[in-house]
Deep mutational scan, measured.
Amino acid sequence: MISNAKIARINELAAKAKAGVITEEEKAEQQKLRQEYLK
């Protein structure tokens, strides 16, 4: 099960992506976390 901290990070990265200020490194982290969440 995914931790609350990881869910919070997913939401934080989603907000950054929506604002258009996300880095390529953060995009990769976001994809990794989303895949983990979906498992």
Results as ranks from 00 to 15, higher is better:
residue 16 K to R: 06
residue 12 E to C: 04
residue 15 A to F: 07
residue 1 M to Y: 15
residue 3 S to T: 12
residue 36 E to Q: 06
residue 2 I to K: 07
residue 25 E to S: 09
residue 3 S to Y: 07
residue 23 T to Q: 01
residue 27 K to R: 10
residue 5 A to N: 11
residue 1 M to A: 12
residue 1 M to F: 12
residue 20 G to T: 01
residue 9 R to P: 00
residue 28 A to V: 13
residue 13 L to I: 02
residue 9 R to T: 02
residue 13 L to A: 00
residue 37 Y to A: 09
residue 12 E to G: 02
residue 19 A to R: 07
residue 25 E to F: 06
residue 1 M to T: 14
residue 10 I to F: 12
residue 7 I to V: 08
residue 5 A to V: 12
residue 6 K to E: 07
residue 7 I to T: 04
residue 20 G to H: 03
residue 24 E to W: 08
residue 32 K to I: 13
residue 25 E to L: 14
residue 38 L to A: 11
residue 11 N to E: 06
residue 7 I to W: 13
residue 3 S to H: 08
residue 24 E to L: 12
residue 15 A to R: 09
residue 2 I to H: 08
residue 20 G to Q: 04
residue 24 E to R: 07
residue 17 A to P: 00
residue 6 K to S: 09
residue 39 K to I: 14
residue 19 A to S: 08
residue 6 K to R: 06
residue 7 I to R: 11
residue 8 A to D: 13
residue 38 L to R: 11
residue 10 I to Q: 03
residue 14 A to L: 06
residue 3 S to F: 06
residue 21 V to I: 14
residue 12 E to K: 04
residue 5 A to T: 05
residue 4 N to Q: 14
residue 4 N to G: 12
residue 8 A to P: 03
residue 24 E to F: 06
residue 11 N to P: 01
residue 30 Q to R: 11
residue 16 K to M: 04
residue 15 A to W: 10
residue 29 E to P: 00
residue 37 Y to Q: 05
residue 24 E to G: 06
residue 37 Y to F: 06
residue 31 Q to C: 14
residue 35 Q to E: 15
residue 6 K to W: 10
residue 3 S to C: 10
residue 15 A to Y: 06
residue 20 G to D: 02
residue 39 K to W: 14
residue 4 N to M: 15
residue 34 R to F: 14
residue 31 Q to R: 12
residue 17 A to C: 11
residue 16 K to S: 02
residue 34 R to P: 00
residue 36 E to Y: 08
residue 18 K to F: 08
residue 26 E to I: 01
residue 27 K to Q: 05
residue 37 Y to D: 05
residue 14 A to E: 13
residue 6 K to D: 12
residue 1 M to V: 11
residue 36 E to P: 03
residue 35 Q to K: 14
residue 39 K to N: 15
residue 22 I to L: 05
residue 29 E to Q: 03
residue 21 V to F: 07
residue 24 E to I: 10
residue 35 Q to S: 11
residue 31 Q to G: 06
residue 9 R to Y: 03
residue 5 A to G: 09
residue 38 L to V: 13
residue 15 A to D: 07
residue 2 I to T: 08
residue 18 K to E: 10
residue 7 I to P: 04
residue 35 Q to N: 09
residue 7 I to H: 05
residue 32 K to R: 12
residue 18 K to V: 04
residue 13 L to W: 00
residue 19 A to P: 00
residue 4 N to P: 14
residue 23 T to K: 03
residue 22 I to P: 01
residue 15 A to P: 00
residue 29 E to I: 02
residue 34 R to M: 15
residue 35 Q to C: 14
residue 4 N to E: 14
residue 22 I to T: 02
residue 3 S to P: 05
residue 4 N to D: 12
residue 9 R to V: 02
residue 26 E to Y: 01
residue 11 N to M: 13
residue 14 A to R: 13
residue 18 K to R: 11
residue 36 E to T: 04
residue 16 K to I: 04
residue 14 A to T: 06
residue 15 A to K: 10
residue 19 A to K: 15
residue 8 A to W: 08
residue 7 I to E: 05
residue 20 G to C: 06
residue 39 K to H: 15
residue 35 Q to V: 09
residue 20 G to I: 00
residue 3 S to N: 10
residue 25 E to H: 06
residue 5 A to F: 05
residue 26 E to K: 01
residue 8 A to C: 12
residue 23 T to A: 03
residue 7 I to D: 02
residue 17 A to K: 06
residue 3 S to M: 12
residue 24 E to Q: 08
residue 3 S to R: 04
residue 31 Q to I: 08
residue 24 E to P: 10
residue 27 K to N: 05
residue 17 A to F: 07
residue 27 K to H: 06
residue 37 Y to K: 03
residue 29 E to N: 01
residue 31 Q to N: 09
residue 13 L to G: 00
residue 27 K to G: 03
residue 2 I to S: 10
residue 8 A to G: 08
residue 22 I to G: 01
residue 17 A to N: 04
residue 26 E to P: 01
residue 8 A to Y: 09
residue 37 Y to E: 07
residue 21 V to Q: 09
residue 10 I to R: 03
residue 14 A to K: 11
residue 13 L to T: 00
residue 16 K to N: 03
residue 27 K to I: 12
residue 16 K to E: 00
residue 29 E to R: 01
residue 17 A to H: 06
residue 32 K to G: 05
residue 28 A to L: 12
residue 12 E to T: 04
residue 1 M to P: 14
residue 29 E to L: 03
residue 30 Q to Y: 14
residue 33 L to V: 02
residue 32 K to A: 11
residue 26 E to F: 01
residue 9 R to A: 03
residue 32 K to P: 00
residue 25 E to T: 12
residue 30 Q to F: 14
residue 38 L to G: 10
residue 23 T to L: 03
residue 16 K to Y: 04
residue 29 E to K: 00
residue 36 E to K: 05
residue 25 E to C: 06
residue 23 T to R: 03
residue 3 S to I: 11
residue 17 A to S: 14
residue 4 N to T: 13
residue 37 Y to G: 07
residue 7 I to F: 08
residue 26 E to R: 00
residue 39 K to V: 13
residue 20 G to S: 03
residue 15 A to E: 06
residue 17 A to M: 12
residue 19 A to I: 06
residue 32 K to H: 07
residue 28 A to W: 06
residue 2 I to M: 14
residue 3 S to D: 13
residue 39 K to T: 15
residue 11 N to A: 15
residue 21 V to W: 09
residue 33 L to Y: 05
residue 22 I to A: 04
residue 32 K to M: 13
residue 38 L to D: 14
residue 19 A to H: 09
residue 25 E to G: 07
residue 4 N to H: 13
residue 5 A to Q: 14
residue 38 L to W: 09
residue 22 I to E: 01
residue 15 A to G: 05
residue 22 I to M: 07
residue 37 Y to M: 09
residue 38 L to Y: 14
residue 6 K to P: 05
residue 30 Q to D: 05
residue 5 A to K: 07
residue 33 L to P: 00
residue 14 A to V: 10
residue 8 A to M: 13
residue 26 E to S: 00
residue 32 K to S: 11
residue 37 Y to L: 04
residue 28 A to F: 07
residue 18 K to T: 06
residue 13 L to K: 00
residue 9 R to F: 03
residue 36 E to W: 12
residue 12 E to L: 08
residue 20 G to V: 02
residue 30 Q to P: 01
residue 21 V to M: 05
residue 15 A to N: 08
residue 1 M to I: 13
residue 23 T to G: 02
residue 31 Q to W: 08
residue 21 V to D: 08
residue 10 I to C: 11
residue 13 L to Q: 00
residue 4 N to A: 15
residue 30 Q to S: 07
residue 19 A to G: 05
residue 36 E to C: 12
residue 37 Y to P: 04
residue 16 K to H: 02
residue 34 R to G: 04
residue 34 R to S: 12
residue 30 Q to V: 12
residue 8 A to H: 11
residue 25 E to P: 06
residue 15 A to T: 09
residue 13 L to E: 00
residue 37 Y to W: 11
residue 14 A to D: 13
residue 19 A to D: 07
residue 25 E to V: 07
residue 33 L to M: 03
residue 33 L to W: 03
residue 1 M to D: 10
residue 10 I to A: 07
residue 25 E to R: 07
residue 1 M to R: 05
residue 2 I to Q: 06
residue 19 A to N: 13
residue 24 E to Y: 04
residue 6 K to Q: 09
residue 20 G to L: 03
residue 33 L to Q: 02
residue 14 A to F: 11
residue 13 L to M: 03
residue 30 Q to A: 15
residue 14 A to Q: 11
residue 11 N to W: 14
residue 21 V to H: 08
residue 23 T to M: 03
residue 35 Q to Y: 08
residue 7 I to A: 06
residue 34 R to Y: 15
residue 25 E to N: 07
residue 39 K to P: 14
residue 21 V to S: 09
residue 12 E to N: 04
residue 15 A to H: 05
residue 23 T to C: 12
residue 9 R to Q: 02
residue 6 K to N: 10
residue 17 A to I: 08
residue 22 I to W: 02
residue 39 K to F: 14
residue 6 K to H: 10
residue 14 A to W: 14
residue 2 I to N: 08
residue 1 M to K: 14
residue 9 R to W: 02
residue 25 E to Y: 05
residue 18 K to Q: 11
residue 19 A to L: 12
residue 28 A to Y: 12
residue 6 K to L: 15
residue 13 L to C: 02
residue 36 E to G: 04
residue 8 A to E: 09
residue 1 M to H: 11
residue 19 A to T: 08
residue 26 E to H: 01
residue 30 Q to T: 04
residue 22 I to V: 02
residue 11 N to K: 13
residue 10 I to D: 02
residue 28 A to K: 14
residue 37 Y to I: 13
residue 13 L to H: 01
residue 12 E to W: 05
residue 21 V to N: 13
residue 14 A to M: 10
residue 9 R to S: 01
residue 25 E to M: 08
residue 13 L to R: 00
residue 39 K to S: 15
residue 38 L to I: 12
residue 3 S to V: 11
residue 24 E to K: 12
residue 39 K to C: 13
residue 13 L to F: 02
residue 14 A to Y: 05
residue 17 A to W: 07
residue 10 I to T: 03
residue 21 V to G: 05
residue 33 L to H: 04
residue 12 E to S: 04
residue 4 N to F: 13
residue 28 A to I: 14
residue 26 E to M: 00
residue 22 I to Q: 04
residue 16 K to T: 01
residue 8 A to L: 11
residue 35 Q to R: 12
residue 29 E to M: 03
residue 18 K to Y: 08
residue 11 N to F: 14
residue 28 A to P: 00
residue 20 G to R: 03
residue 12 E to R: 04
residue 35 Q to F: 10
residue 11 N to Y: 11
residue 39 K to E: 15
residue 6 K to V: 15
residue 13 L to Y: 02
residue 27 K to E: 05
residue 1 M to G: 13
residue 23 T to I: 01
